[in-house]
Amino acid sequence: MLKVALITPARRGSHAGNRTTATRWAGLLHDLGCRVRVAQSDGDADGCRLDGQPPDLVLALHAVRSHAAIRACRAAFPACPLVVVLTGTDVYRFQHSDPEAFLDSLAASDALIGLHDCLAEDLPPRCLSRLHVVHQSALPLPPRAPGPIRRSFEVLVAGHLREEKDSLRAALAVRDLPSTSRLCVVQLGGAHRPEWAEAAREEMAGNARYRWLGDLPRWRVRQWMARARLMVISSRMEGGANVVSEACVAGLPVVASDIPGNRGLLGEDYAGYFPVADTAALRALLCRAEAEPAFVDRLRRQVLARAPLFSPAAEREALVRVIAACGLTV
């Protein structure tokens, strides 16, 4: 039975993407017959032992935030294959702001995992032979019960409020629309910093088309996904957002910023992109979606065409390929 240590910088109970990925992968690996220990990256290598024994494989999420744990595991378990999972902030921020830690984690790895198809564009060429893409999976939403026809055209934004997500862009895009427009934005997710919470409250006070509901449990987020007409992903950088996978599997049309992390999940020919931080372009797309049902149907067909990439079986098979590349079997 393969013993796997999964390292994540996110604490137990966190709704952060790194913790969600670690929890889901722990379940997939358990289904494959592995024994799995999820450890926080602020601990030492002893936290990765299973019943006092060294792991057979270490999977570390986040090259920079888990850098100390990666180095500790490489020193404590020199014969143990080590896989580093690259996040958006790794590749699109820390590679430039903290290149020493980033490149050191890459050098310590036996294999790398990226979560979208365009990641190779932004990695050092010498690393590409070790790169494997694992698309994050999602489960279908439960069937939606019939209900009253809603007059509003609800646009959903789901994710922590933070700079990388450009979180208030959709709210800005629906300001000052004509009174005939039915567009409104519902935002879900906790504020990464107090100033983001204050900014969201200020926006609600001055923008009747915007509501921020804060950090909700997963089942409530899925309820909102089932009722929304459209989802906006406005991020400045993404490593492969699981919410995009969920939208595709749910058949929820997406309007997304034109960045590698979105193109690497939705495809180069997707019709719903807008330039990063371009409020006017986003407003135009949202107004088009409200006015043209055929455009929304086109986006829905495109996301559904991508949905097979994000099945649990496909994600599990991709993990098996990474394990095999490390010379191990499950």
Rank of each mutant, 00 (worst) to 15 (best):
L6W: 08
L141G: 07
L168A: 00
A324I: 11
G147F: 11
L28Q: 13
H192R: 12
V296S: 04
R263G: 05
G27D: 14
G114W: 02
S234Q: 01
L32K: 06
S97T: 15
V221E: 02
L230I: 02
L115W: 05
R306Y: 09
D122Q: 12
S105T: 10
Y270F: 15
V58R: 02
A280M: 08
Q40G: 15
R12T: 11
R49Y: 09
A101S: 14
A228E: 00
R74Q: 07
L123D: 04
P217T: 06
S14R: 07
A171K: 01
C287E: 15
I70W: 01
V330C: 15
A16E: 13
F274H: 04
E154P: 15
L286T: 01
A277M: 07
A305V: 08
V58C: 09
L299F: 09
V185N: 02
A63Q: 03
S179W: 15
T20I: 14
L119Y: 03
C48T: 07
D176G: 13
R126P: 06
P124V: 08
L328Y: 05
R220T: 11
L50F: 14
D117I: 04
R193M: 06
R229K: 13
L172T: 03
A10P: 10
C80K: 05
L59R: 02
R74V: 02
R24S: 12
E100W: 14
G264N: 04
L103H: 15
W212Y: 05
L304E: 10
H132C: 08
V276P: 02
R298M: 13
A138N: 05
N262R: 10
P312Y: 07
H132A: 07
L304M: 13
S14C: 09
A281R: 13
L216T: 03
V254N: 00
A208G: 13
A291P: 04
A120F: 07
L141N: 04
L230D: 00
M204I: 05
R321K: 15
E290P: 08
R11Q: 12
L252D: 00
I7S: 09
G267L: 06
V58F: 03
S66P: 03
D117K: 05
T23W: 14
A318I: 01
V296N: 07
E198F: 08
R288D: 08
C80V: 09
A138M: 06
E121Q: 14
C118S: 13
F310C: 01
A291F: 09
E195V: 10
V186W: 11
P253V: 03
A197E: 15
P312T: 10
H67L: 07
P81Y: 07
R298H: 12
A63Y: 03
C248N: 05
V330F: 15
V221R: 01
H160M: 11
L304C: 11
R144D: 01
G264K: 01
I323K: 06
E315C: 10
A75L: 13
V221W: 00
D166T: 10
F153T: 06
R175T: 03
V276Y: 04
L304N: 02
L103Y: 09
